[in-house]
């Protein structure tokens, strides 16, 4: 693909994202746009992709496992809701949600990353269940099983963002900013350290990279993205209750990132699309939808562990120069081999 074509396609894509769901018949274009539900699903896809981007940083770049992204989404959603009820503007709620999750990430990751691999997974698993219990039990704060109704969508420059399309544009803008920040982060010297870490953490350590520090930051930032996603989720649904923040949902985030393509920049967007849009496309299968889904995931992992992005590349490009992003995660093979010292007694 030539460079100009690439740029043209990119501009077209951005244009589609901006005006795609809108009704263009007023401009003489025979496109009535998406209905409210279609816009809702598209917005949900963006929100899910932001949370998945966070997981990708933790899993695909820092080589750790997190089983708590849905819990961070929950913390973000409740932070935004409660601060909004207290009268704060959405902008501040949004930043606070990300910040709270970042700090919780530091507190949680600091001791967990002290010990060996997989322990972050165990600690986040426990954390995930605990957060769900708190949301479910502490009725005075979170509304308990009945959740919180009537969450307001923000008002910007006097314009209410209640209409689905306006809110979509807000989420699109925020997603673009967060995606840009992630891009910058991964291209900075910082991000290069991540790549070195993923390729070979032992070598990275010997080159003077503070592996633990970087991993901790990756986990905290990734969790912060979960908080940002939660801040956008609550006004989108206008209602929150404990169920979308349970452990199963966290597993789903891990699954969608790896299935999309961990360690690839667009992987989270593809994974989120699979998770949000696939149920719509497989609606005809009814109860068998999840069976088909599970089988597809297992086949994908067996034949193409670099996910859908990896599969797509394998199908479209013939043996090319390997690119850092194309390699996908080494996922444990670099650091995972362990031996047991001593003998069993």
């Amino acid at each position: 693909m030539s460079r100009t074509l690439k740029i043209a396609l990119g501009v077209l894509l951005i244009a589609i994202f901006i005006v795609g769901p809108a009704d263009l018949t007023g401009f003489g274009i025979p496109w009535t746009g998406l209905k409210r539900y279609g816009t809702y699903i598209l917005t949900l896809w963006l929100v899910t992709a932001v949370a998945a981007m966070g997981v990708n940083l933790i899993v695909g770049y820092a080589g750790q496992e997190t089983l708590a992204q849905a819990a961070f989404l929950g913390i973000g959603a409740f932070t935004t809701t409660l601060l909004q009820k207290a009268g704060l503007p959405f902008g501040l709620c949004f930043i606070a949600s990300g910040l709270v999750c970042f700090l919780v990430g530091i507190i949680l990751g600091f001791p967990a990353l002290r010990v060996q691999k997989h322990y972050l997974a165990f600690v986040t698993l426990a954390f995930s269940v605990f957060v769900w219990l708190v949301i479910r039990n502490e009725e005075w704060l979170t509304g308990g099983v009945n959740g919180i109704q009537g969450i307001k969508r923000p008002v910007l420059f006097g314009i209410s963002l209640r209409p689905a399309l306006y809110y979509y544009w807000l989420v699109l803008t925020l997603t673009a900013v967060l995606t840009g920040m992630m891009w910058w982060l991964l291209r900075s010297p910082w991000g290069r350290a991540f790549t070195a870490l993923r390729e070979n953490s032992v070598r990275a350590e010997s080159l003077g990279i503070d592996v633990r520090g970087y991993t901790l930051m990756a986990f905290a930032i990734g969790s912060g993205y979960g908080g940002f996603a939660g801040a956008m989720y609550a006004p989108l649904v206008e209602f929150i209750d404990p169920s979308p923040f349970a452990l199963g949902a966290s597993l789903q985030y891990l699954l969608m990132v790896v299935a999309g393509g961990a360690g690839s920049f667009v992987g989270p967007f593809v994974g989120a699309a699979v998770s949000v849009l696939l149920p719509e496309w497989l609606r005809f299968a009814e109860g068998f939808y999840l069976i088909i889904f599970a089988l597809l995931v297992m086949l994908l992992m067996a034949f193409c562990p670099t996910g859908i992005v990896g599969l797509f590349e394998r199908l479209t490009t013939k043996a090319r120069r390997p690119h850092a992003d194309d390699k996908g995660p080494t996922l444990g093979t670099g650091t995972g081999s362990t031996t047991v010292a001593g003998s069993k007694s």
């Binding site: 693909m1 690439k6 396609l9 990119g10 077209l12 894509l13 589609i16 994202f17 795609g20 920049f265 667009v266 967007f269 593809v270 699309a273 849009l277 496309w281 859908i308 992005v309 797509f312 590349e313 479209t316 490009t317």
Partner: peptide, 12 residues
């Protein structure tokens, strides 16, 4: 090539 896959997803 990411573009291509994203375009395909949007069209779908």
């Amino acid at each position: 090539m990411y573009l291509k896959s994203t375009v395909a997803a949007v069209l779908a």
